[in-house]
């Protein structure tokens, strides 16, 4: 049943033009970066800034919009013998999958036809992994918000605020805390801070790849020692999984209990 809904959803999403525009955006951007004389690794570094800002924003807004727009369709389907959780998973994957594919495809195609080396490939794969995780996480949050608030303005507004919070305000708060408590050993709290924000976590994972020389300084050693070990990697992965699971399960719960 999920497969059937998913198939229908995918066809619907593919037919609308925004997903193609979304893929083209990444494709053109990556291509232009290559044309401006960047080698593979440099392109990934430039892309990283875009990915960390655009993906959360796009996933959030598109996700919320999509759910608000298909409200009547959902109500229609619910009149039929379709289980609610099946419908939810169909709807969720129906948006998250195309987002991931559009992003991954858009970014990777220029890398294929420009023929880059293995170092650039490992970098771009990390980028695609991070971007995909962020896509799914923020679509999940958007679904939860759209289901929680019937008022579109409220839902979208909140989505924007949350997005802004994770991309900008959160880092400002960290800086504030670091300044405030600069005379205390902050290594461990700062690692904990970075695990709480999925965007920060993605950013630090990529920093480990690109800015390794800067990170080899005093502070960097702390991160290297943490993320470099199996234990640290496990904790990072668990935290990422939690970020995947919590918004989606909250959304699912909303969907199951909601009085449409």
């Amino acid at each position: 049943m999920i497969a059937k809904i998913l198939k229908y959803q995918l066809r619907d999403v593919m037919r609308s033009k925004w997903i193609i525009a979304y893929a083209l955006l990444f494709l053109i951007f990556t291509d232009v970066l290559f044309r401006f004389g960047g080698d593979g690794v440099r392109v990934v570094t430039s892309l990283m800034n875009v990915v960390l800002i655009v993906i959360p924003l796009a996933s959030m807004i598109l996700g919320a919009f999509y759910l608000y727009n298909t409200r009547e369709y959902i109500e229609l389907l619910l009149c039929h013998p379709v289980k609610r959780h099946q419908l939810f998973w169909g709807m969720f994957l129906g948006l998250a999958l195309p987002m991931v594919l559009a992003f991954g495809g858009g970014v990777m195609i220029p890398f294929v036809y420009n023929g880059v080396g293995p170092e650039a490939w490992s970098a771009v794969l990390l980028l695609v992994f991070t971007g995909s995780a962020l896509s799914v996480i923020f679509v999940g949050i958007a679904y939860y918000l759209a289901l929680r608030f019937d008022d579109r303005i409220k839902g979208l507004g909140l989505a924007l605020v949350i997005c802004l919070f994770f991309t900008v305000i959160y880092d400002g708060l960290i800086l504030f805390v670091i300044y405030l408590l600069s005379s205390y050993p902050l290594e461990k709290p700062v690692i904990a801070f970075s695990l709480v924000n999925p965007i920060d976590m993605g950013r630090i994972l990529m920093l480990m790849q690109f800015d390794i020389s800067a990170l080899m300084g005093l502070t960097g050693a702390v991160f290297r020692d943490f993320f470099g070990t199996k234990m640290g990697m496990m904790i990072a992965l668990v935290s990422l999984l939690l970020w995947l699971a919590i918004p989606v399960s909250a959304g699912l719960r909303q969907f199951l209990l909601k009085d449409f």
């Binding site: 990283m48 800034n49 960390l52 800002i53 991309t167 900008v168 305000i169 880092d171 400002g172 960290i174 800086l175 670091i178 300044y179 600069s182 902050l186 290594e187 700062v190 970075s194 920060d200 950013r203 630090i204 990529m206 920093l207 800015d211 800067a214 990170l215 300084g217 005093l218 502070t219 960097g220 991160f223």
Partner: peptide, 18 residues
């Protein structure tokens, strides 16, 4: 900022810092 507070280095490439 990093000069004064080395831990702030973790915000490298963050939107806020830019």
């Amino acid at each position: 900022i990093v000069e004064r507070n080395p831990m702030a280095l973790m915000l490298l490439r963050s939107m806020f810092v830019q």
